[in-house]
């Protein structure tokens, strides 16, 4: 009986070692340890043996069973590792082939600029208003202190509609009037929008461009607040180290009026072709709301003061991205759009 056990053990160890895959190993296990396996049958036959023999054979058979079970478990783990390794090797791909070309759409650089400008003012507590592009003479000119036959109209060549009294707004300022007609002070509002000038298009002029208008009205709004808010804005947009200066200008709907220049972003103030050697770039117009504009919307000019400003989006975008021809913005060449 012992010889038989030793022989089973020897053969089983050999077969386990030789097994090259999980299936063969499983066959070995069934042959030895399965329900009808050689070792299982010996263990089952123990009951029919004399007592001493039963004891010694039983011990040895159990030792062998534990040994073989451990060997099979170890071997199973080894074979599994081997099989996964083979699968991994077989599934290997060239990871340097191009990945799937998901495409990414772009927002138009003018819209990006417009939204950057708007978001700065929104963070400073301004709300956003919009108005119609087709306007009446009253909103575009008269309510803004530009009476009929006034030479200031020459600066704003206007598109008129055929067979209709309306015109295409020449600035976003008429929305100031709409807002003040609907709302009482205090108010702080910006107006992004499209404006129209009847002039020939070239690298720096466009018959259509975009503005962001700003307006703040309250009982104690001063010129110094206007300087403060525009200084914050310019620093947020162009960087905190960019110098700016205010100089007198003229707009019919503000008094006093100012033009804001910033240090040339190209030459940093040294003087170059872009700034025509001055070191400064004219960036935006602003001023304190003219009392006649307040009168046009029935605000008391003694009680309220306010400031207004107008930012040319194309101009800001041109300096931000270094675009030297305004027409590129309206051509919509994908090679251009995909750069932003």
């Amino acid at each position: 009986m012992l010889e038989t056990l030793i022989e089973i053990g020897r053969q089983a160890r050999h077969s386990i070692e030789e097994a090259g895959d999980i299936e063969t190993l499983e066959k070995v296990r069934v042959t030895v340890l399965g329900r009808k396996g050689h070792l299982t049958e010996i263990l089952r036959g123990l009951a029919g043996l004399p007592i001493e023999q039963r004891k010694s054979t039983g011990e040895q058979a159990n030792v062998l069973r534990e040994e073989l079970e451990r060997m099979i478990a170890d071997k199973t783990a080894t074979l599994k590792r081997k099989s996964i390794g083979e699968k991994l090797a077989a599934d290997r791909i060239d990871t340097t082939l191009p990945g799937f070309p998901f495409s990414r759409g772009r927002f138009h650089p003018l819209r990006q600029t417009l939204e950057e400008i708007s978001s700065i003012f929104v963070s400073l507590g301004f709300s956003v208003a919009e108005g119609p592009e087709l306007e009446t003479d009253w909103y575009n000119f008269e309510a803004l202190n530009i009476p009929p036959d006034h030479p200031a109209r020459d600066n704003q060549d206007t598109f008129y509609l055929a067979g209709d009294k309306r015109l295409l707004r020449t600035h976003t300022s008429p929305v100031q009037v709409h807002v003040m007609e609907k709302q009482n002070p205090p108010l702080k509002v910006i107006v992004p929008g499209r404006v129209f000038r009847n002039e020939a298009t070239d690298a720096t002029h466009s018959a259509i461009f975009h503005q962001v208008e700003g307006l703040a009205v309250d009982e104690r709004i001063t010129f110094s607040y206007l300087k403060g808010i525009l200084t914050l804005f310019v620093h947020r947009f162009f960087g905190a180290n960019v110098d700016l200066r205010f100089r007198p200008s003229h707009f019919q709907f503000t008094e006093p009026s100012a033009e804001v220049d910033i240090q040339c972003t190209i030459c940093k103030g040294a003087g170059c072709r872009i700034c025509k050697g001055t070191g400064w770039l004219e960036m935006l117009g602003c001023g304190m709301v003219h009392p006649n504009v307040f009168k046009a919307v029935n605000y008391d000019p003694e009680k309220y003061t306010g400031f207004a400003f107008g930012i040319g989006v194309e101009r800001f975008a041109m300096f931000k991205y270094g675009v030297d021809d305004i027409r590129l913005f309206y051509e919509n060449n994908l090679k251009f759009l995909e750069q932003f």
Binding site: K188, V189, I221, I229, L232, F246, P256, P291
Partner: peptide
């Protein structure tokens, strides 16, 4: 009107004399 004269005063004196003040942020 008066505001036109105020502009003359600050125009001749110089806009650099206007302080740069931070307006209280009062979100609407």
């Amino acid at each position: 009107q008066e505001t036109d004269l105020l502009e003359e005063l600050i125009r001749i004196k110089g806009y650099e004399h206007v302080p740069t003040a931070v307006m209280p942020v009062m979100p609407d």
